[in-house]
Design a protein around this nucleic acid. Structure first.
Lengths: 138, 138
DNA sequence: TCCGGTATTGACAATCATTATCAATAAGCA
DNA sequence: TGCTTATTGATAATGATTGTCAATACCGGA
């Protein structure tokens, strides 16, 4: 039942490809702008739909930025989490077996079923640290 | 510099009190409705401002629900995380020392400074499990 | 290759939470 | 009691996301 009635369009390919090119996480609006700047005539609603599809299929990760915007990123493969620079958006994938099992244990212990979790770490990457210090001295 | 020019108003007290009464996490809109239903004439914008203040002071926790809404909860004291029922909003506070240290380690290992993290677990609490099964049989 | 049913698109309107605006109000101090 | 100004609240503005719906184009079958 993965794709009983799914059709392939150049729009979906464009979104998939643009997402692959992007570095770090990008929002739907932003991705739409990029596509338009490259000459595409794709519609904004279509970008939203394509991204939601990719996330549902498992070909994209999604998370919300700290101001509430939904961000996407091409997904490598298995379940993992992210370490994100709050200045430049640099993203590092992190394995979290220890935390996966911890989350499931905690949920089960409290009688919760079908647990899902949101685990993301934000920080300032080394490059941005230097940049910020330079700015403070100005 | 905590409150050099801060003034105390009944509005702020009302929000603080209403937040204390609420069970689990509540949104600003929701809290505003509750206050109005209790006869208060408080404005919506004021509720937003008061909640943002409480969170900044450290008297309230905040997190975003899975559909992007900002939710608040009266804060007990120290740093902790939450296990939240996605149906009824029941919230359980969880200690997470293991995860705290893990998050800091991971960030440091990648050269990230001032790490903060978002860790929340969503699930279906035992009460709602029963309720959902009953509904499916209908 | 052509055709027809229908999934998909895209321009636009509609939502919804949140923030900005700004005149009117009231907290707190001399 | 006055004065200064932080705060309020009605409302408009913003911005991301979703709904609408006629037009389009994918794809399996003839």
């Amino acid at each position: 039942m993965t794709d009983s009635k799914r059709r392939n369009t150049w729009q979906k390919d464009a979104v998939r490809h643009a997402l692959g090119e992007a570095v770090g996480f990008v929002g739907a609006q932003q991705l739409h702008q990029v596509l338009r700047n490259h000459g595409s005539t794709i519609g904004l609603a279509t970008v939203y739909r394509a991204l939601a599809d990719l996330a549902a299929i498992g070909d994209a990760d999604s998370l919300q930025s700290q101001d509430g915007e939904l961000l996407y990123r091409a997904c490598t493969n298995s379940h993992h989490h992210h370490l994100i620079c709050r200045d430049c958006g640099l993203t590092v994938e992190i394995e979290a077996e220890r935390v996966e099992s911890w989350a499931d244990e905690v949920a089960k212990a409290a009688g919760f079923e079908n647990p899902t979790h949101t685990i993301d770490i934000f920080g300032t990457c080394s490059a941005c640290q230097g940049r910020n210090i330079a700015r403070e001295l100005a």
